[in-house]
Amino acid sequence: MGVEEEFLLLDPDGAVAPAAPDVMRRIGSDRRFKPEYMSYQLETATSVCTGLDELRRELIRLRLVAAQAAEKAGVYLIASGAPPFPTGPLGALSHEDRYLKLAERFPEATAIGGTCGCHVHIGIPDRELATAVLSRIRPWLPVLLALTVNSPVTRAGDTGWDSFRYRAQLSWPTFRLPGVWPSAERYDQEIRSLVASGTAVDVSGIYFLARLSARYPTIEVRVADTGLSVDDTVLFAGITRALVATLIEDIRRREKLLPASGPLVSEQLLAVARGRAGQTARLLTKITPQLDAAGDTGEVYAGIERLRREGTGARRQRHLWQKYGPTSGFIGALAAETVPARI
C-alpha cells in the first residue's frame, strides 16, 4: 500500500498562501513531495509500505519535513479538506501546463478553489482482478467517506457538511462512483472515451472515487478528505487494504455483487453520516478476517474506538471552531493537529 496526502498552506491569519514553490525549494529535490493544483497546496507520497506501523512512521516523517519547510516559509501546513477562510488568492494556480489546461477546460470547478484529499493505493498487479474489485467496492465508498470527513468549516463558517470538499468536487464531471466494467479493456475504453470527449483532459484527470491508477499497478481509493491526523490516515489505509483483500476473496469465491450505491448526493451523504455506527459495524464484520490475516485487527479496532470517543476530523474541527471561532487560534489549532509531535 501507499498513501498520497494533500495539504493546504495557510498564513497565520488563515488566508491561503501561494507558497508551494518556496516550500518546495526548501525541501529540495525529494520526489516524495510535489506542488498540487493550487499554489497553496502541497502533496506528499509515501513509498510502498507493507505494514501499518511502517506507514505511520513514513507519514509522520513526511508531515514533519513539510511542516518545517512551511514554517521557514512563514506559513502553516494544514490538513483540512478545504480552506477554512475565503481570504487570499483562492484561484492561484500552480504554474504547470497541465494545470493551466485544466483551469481552461473546467473554469467553474477551478473557481471553487483547491481541496485536499487522501488517496490510498493498494497493489493489485492483475488489472482484470483490479477492475472487478472496483465494481465491488462501490457500495462501501459512502461509509469510507463518512469515516474520513474533514472539511466542515469553509468560507468562515460551518457549512453543514462534514465534507465540504466532497460537495465542491462534484463540480468535476468525473468525480463520481466507478462503474461496473466486465473487463479491464472495457474500463480502458471508458477512460479513453472520457478523455476523447473532453470530459477529462487526460487519464490522470479521471477523478472517480476509486479508480485504477494511471501510474502504478494499484487500485486507488480517492473518496476521503485528507486526514486531520496521521492516525486518521493510517485507519483509512488499514480499512481500505482489508476491504480490497476481502473483495478479492469474494471474487475468487464468485460471490454476487452487492447492490450499488446510487449517486452520492447531499441527502444520501448525510444519511450515511447519521447511520455511520451501523454501517461501520457491517464493514468491520466483513473485513475482520482479512484484518486478522494482516495483523491489523487491534490497530483498526482501536482507531474506530478513537473515532467513537473523539469524532471524525469534521467533528474535531467543529469543536475547535466552537472554541476559537474565525481567528488565528483556529488555524494554529489545526496546524497542531496536523503535525505529529513524535516519530
Rank of each mutant, 00 (worst) to 15 (best):
residue 148 T to F: 08
residue 203 V to P: 06
residue 94 S to T: 01
residue 336 A to F: 09
residue 222 R to A: 05
residue 275 G to P: 06
residue 6 E to F: 14
residue 100 L to P: 00
residue 68 Q to I: 00
residue 58 E to V: 09
residue 48 V to Q: 13
residue 29 S to P: 09
residue 27 I to W: 10
residue 17 A to C: 04
residue 89 P to Y: 06
residue 79 A to Q: 02
residue 51 G to Q: 13
residue 264 L to W: 06
residue 242 A to K: 04
residue 245 A to M: 10
residue 110 T to N: 07
residue 332 G to I: 02
residue 219 I to Q: 05
residue 17 A to E: 02
residue 21 P to L: 00
residue 62 L to D: 09
residue 227 G to I: 08
residue 210 A to H: 10
residue 139 P to R: 07
residue 241 R to M: 07
residue 342 R to L: 04
residue 337 E to L: 02
residue 231 D to F: 02
residue 132 A to N: 06
residue 300 V to K: 10
residue 211 R to E: 11
residue 235 L to H: 09
residue 212 L to Q: 10
residue 172 W to G: 00
residue 121 H to S: 12
residue 190 E to R: 08
residue 235 L to P: 03
residue 172 W to K: 05
residue 264 L to E: 04
residue 197 S to T: 11
residue 123 G to R: 15
residue 290 Q to A: 09
residue 214 A to Y: 06
residue 165 R to D: 01
residue 232 D to N: 09
residue 307 L to I: 15
residue 37 Y to M: 01
residue 321 W to F: 14
residue 279 Q to R: 15
residue 175 F to N: 01
residue 58 E to Y: 14
residue 62 L to C: 13
residue 197 S to Y: 08
residue 280 T to Y: 09
residue 159 T to C: 04
residue 136 R to T: 13
residue 260 A to N: 07
residue 188 D to C: 12
residue 296 D to K: 11
residue 206 I to V: 15
residue 180 V to F: 11
residue 285 T to A: 12
residue 106 F to Q: 08
residue 45 A to C: 13
residue 225 D to W: 14
residue 86 P to K: 05
residue 276 R to P: 06
residue 131 T to F: 15
residue 64 L to A: 13
residue 289 P to A: 06
residue 128 E to F: 08
residue 228 L to S: 04
residue 64 L to W: 12
residue 162 D to V: 00
residue 130 A to V: 08
residue 334 L to Q: 10
residue 165 R to L: 01
residue 162 D to Y: 09
residue 160 G to D: 13
residue 312 T to G: 05
residue 6 E to S: 14
residue 5 E to F: 05
residue 266 S to M: 10
residue 258 L to M: 12
residue 321 W to V: 08
residue 176 R to V: 05
residue 130 A to D: 04
residue 168 A to P: 03
residue 272 V to Y: 14
residue 250 D to I: 03
residue 31 R to Y: 03
residue 228 L to W: 09
residue 79 A to V: 04
residue 62 L to I: 02
residue 1 M to R: 11
residue 280 T to G: 04
residue 235 L to G: 03
residue 129 L to R: 07
residue 240 T to W: 01
residue 235 L to W: 13
residue 132 A to V: 01
residue 128 E to G: 15
residue 30 D to S: 08
residue 88 G to C: 01
residue 68 Q to C: 01
residue 12 P to K: 04
residue 87 T to A: 08
residue 294 A to W: 12
residue 163 S to G: 05
residue 215 R to D: 02
residue 33 F to Q: 10
residue 129 L to A: 04
residue 123 G to C: 15
residue 190 E to I: 01
residue 188 D to E: 15
residue 106 F to E: 00
residue 242 A to S: 09
residue 192 R to G: 11
residue 279 Q to E: 12
residue 283 L to S: 14
residue 126 D to S: 12
residue 82 A to T: 12
residue 147 L to W: 12
residue 298 G to W: 09
